[in-house]
Design a protein around this nucleic acid. Structure first.
Lengths: 253, 253
DNA sequence: ATCATTTAGCTAACGCCGTTCACTCTAATG
DNA sequence: CATTAGAGTGAACGGCGTTAGCTAAATGAT
């Protein structure tokens, strides 16, 4: 057996978990100080007080450690976002969506180095079948985490739509939908059923949601990487952008 | 004297330029194959057929080489964009702006690795005064290149506005402007006078232009980094986004 | 044509880096 | 208590960016 009589984690397991946490913390520190490419296995070992080789008992490679760090960062972003959203009542969907945006922005700008790592971490494919045996590093885990993050907003959107449909809140029809092929319509509906789990909103809502998602992403990336053409009044600029997006949904205020 | 009697470049200068080109080409190849962090000075030296140390006769450091490469990439992007825009007559501002978007997108998606380098290259500050002597690496050169790129679009926008103002083309007032402080208004006008050189457009146009710029940037980054929620019908999705942006300017079609 | 100077390139070395392998010691297991 | 699995070590390999000192060739001036 791998666990003791009490069923809890073994002493060894606790020690191991603690070491892993220490390693990750050190990696994180280096990430913040020297950027994604400045993370050094040997430096981590030095900081943890251990031989470089010892780290291989915990991670298959530096890449694996980076991947794990990346996953942690997503979890952190998601936790922060959830906390921000939960500052508003469950049915204040609009406010919760705004909080989602603000939390995303705050996190990305406050953790530029981390955000850089998350955005540019080599996608999929990197992990493949080797001798028919699946690697530990799940290629899609990161995409799934990113999806999980966006779903936080998608869910609110869906709930908002439902309420509007029932006439419980004021919302006009989203702005006029551009003409598009059946193919694009289908793909939008399909891909966005991933964002907005189990709900089917009309195409106009899905389209506006996707457009908004692109706009927010653009804002956040530009600000984090320093190419936003507004710097002193960024907060307010975001607000005007949010207003403009809400307008697309036929919502004012 | 450093040049011969004919006034043209010396034999040595020609050789030197050729070698530099060779080095850059090799760096570029490695960038495409192994990504920004996979560029190795020693590998370049190997490929060029020279000792690693020899490269220091041409670039102060690997970082300097990367910086130079980055500048070249911007020039390439700008050249491509200009060529695409020039496929339309000088006064077809709308078409030229669309071409700008398409060229940007095509370049970024067709050169993901390069785009990654350009976006994440450490900004400013890196180059500072050393012993009161300016370094060769100009910290703002990259920002200026990025500006140059966006100005290509800004100029068309300004020209379009001028024509619309003169009543030579149909264009309604841009959509209603969200309320904003004098501070933001001033900053928008100021920062965007950088995009739209020498012209002063009304705030509503400047705001819509900036919003559109953010949207395009979001689209391009998301597609290049694989987080765009549309994949099969991307072309068409871009078109709908462009239509939606044009709508913000009060333009249909 | 000769000499001095500039310049491109070399070799060798330094101190980093990620990774592997064989080994030891210690702590948990049966 | 004997066995075993796990954590850790030390040494090595090849690769990296960078520096210093040297050589030889091309250049420019006399």
């Amino acid at each position: 057996m791998t666990s003791n009589t009490a069923g809890g984690p073994t002493r060894r397991e606790r020690m191991r978990a603690e070491t892993i946490a220490e390693i990750k913390a050190s990696a994180r520190r280096q990430l913040q100080e020297h950027g994604p490419s400045g993370i050094s296995l040997r430096a981590i070992a030095r900081e943890v007080g251990v031989t470089p080789a010892a780290l291989y008992r915990y991670f298959d490679s530096l890449d694996a450690l980076l991947h794990a760090t990346c996953v942690d960062l997503y979890d952190e972003l998601i936790a922060d976002t959830v906390a921000a959203m939960d500052a508003h009542p469950e049915d204040a969907h609009l406010e919760r969506m705004k909080s989602w945006i603000w939390a995303f922005r705050a996190w990305a700008v406050g953790h530029r180095r981390e955000f850089e790592l998350m955005i540019s971490f080599p996608d999929g494919k990197a992990a493949m079948l080797i001798d028919g045996e699946q690697l530990e590093r799940d290629p899609d885990l990161l995409s799934r985490k990113a999806l999980e993050h966006s779903q936080l907003c998608g869910r609110e959107m869906a709930a908002f739509y439902r309420k509007a449909e029932r006439g419980e809140i004021e919302a006009n029809r989203p702005a006029e939908l551009p003409a598009m092929s059946e193919g694009l319509k289908a793909e939008l509906m399909e891909k966005c059923s991933a964002f907005i789990v189990g709900e089917d909103m009309p195409l106009a809502w899905v389209f506006s949601f996707t457009s908004g998602w692109v706009r927010v992403f653009g804002l956040v990336v530009m600000e984090a990487f320093g190419s936003l053409p507004v710097s002193e009044n960024v907060d307010e600029f975001y607000k005007t952008q949010v207003l403009s997006m809400m307008h697309d949904f036929g919502i004012e205020g």
